[in-house]
Amino acid sequence: MAMLFEAWQGVQGRISAACTACARKPQEITLLAVSKTFPAADIHQLYQLGQREFGENYAQELEQKATELADCHELVWHFIGPLQSNKTRIVANAAHWVHTIERSKIAERLNNQRPAALPPLNVCLQVNVSGEASKSGVAPDELLVLARNVAQMPRLKLRGLMCIPEATADQVKLAKQFQLLKQCQDMLNAHGFALDTLSMGMSSDLELAIANGSTLVRVGSAIFGARPYLASPPEQEQ
Rank of each mutant, 00 (worst) to 15 (best):
M1K: 10
A2G: 07
M3W: 09
M3D: 15
L4S: 13
F5Y: 10
F5K: 13
E6G: 07
W8I: 03
Q9D: 12
G10A: 08
G10V: 09
G10D: 08
V11C: 08
Q12F: 11
R14V: 12
I15E: 02
S16A: 15
R24L: 13
P26F: 08
P26Y: 13
P26I: 06
I29K: 06
L32A: 09
T37S: 15
P39D: 14
A40M: 07
I43F: 05
I43L: 14
H44L: 12
Y47S: 08
L49Y: 14
Q51D: 09
E53V: 14
F54N: 03
G55P: 06
E56L: 06
N57K: 02
Q60S: 12
E61L: 13
E63N: 10
Q64A: 14
K65T: 12
T67E: 12
A70I: 12
D71P: 04
C72K: 07
H73L: 10
H78R: 10
H78A: 07
F79H: 00
P82D: 03
L83K: 04
S85Y: 04
N86L: 07
T88E: 03
T88H: 05
R89P: 07
A92Y: 02
A94G: 02
A95D: 05
T100D: 01
I101F: 01
I101Y: 04
I101R: 04
R103G: 02
S104I: 13
S104Q: 14
L110P: 03
N111C: 13
N112K: 13
R114A: 06
R114E: 03
P115H: 07
A116V: 11
A117K: 09
L118C: 08
P119N: 00
P119C: 02
L121Q: 04
L125T: 03
N128R: 06
N128Y: 07
V129D: 00
E132W: 12
E132A: 11
E132P: 02
V138H: 05
V138R: 01
A139C: 14
A139E: 15
P140W: 04
D141S: 11
E142K: 13
L143R: 01
L144W: 03
L146R: 01
R148I: 00
V150T: 07
V150S: 06
M153A: 05
G160H: 01
C163A: 13
I164H: 03
E166D: 10
A167C: 08
A169Q: 12
Q171F: 03
Q171M: 03
L174S: 05
L174W: 00
K176H: 13
F178P: 02
L180Q: 11
C184S: 08
M187K: 12
H191E: 15
G192I: 06
G192Y: 04
G192M: 06
A194R: 10
M200F: 01
M200V: 01
G201W: 05
M202A: 01
S203L: 06
E207K: 10
L208R: 07
N212P: 01
N212I: 04
T215M: 10
L216Q: 08
R218Y: 07
V219R: 00
V219D: 01
S221R: 10
I223R: 05
I223M: 06
I223Y: 00
F224W: 11
F224M: 09
G225W: 05
G225D: 09
Y229I: 06
L230I: 13
A231D: 13
S232N: 14
E235K: 14
Q236R: 15
E237F: 11
E237M: 15
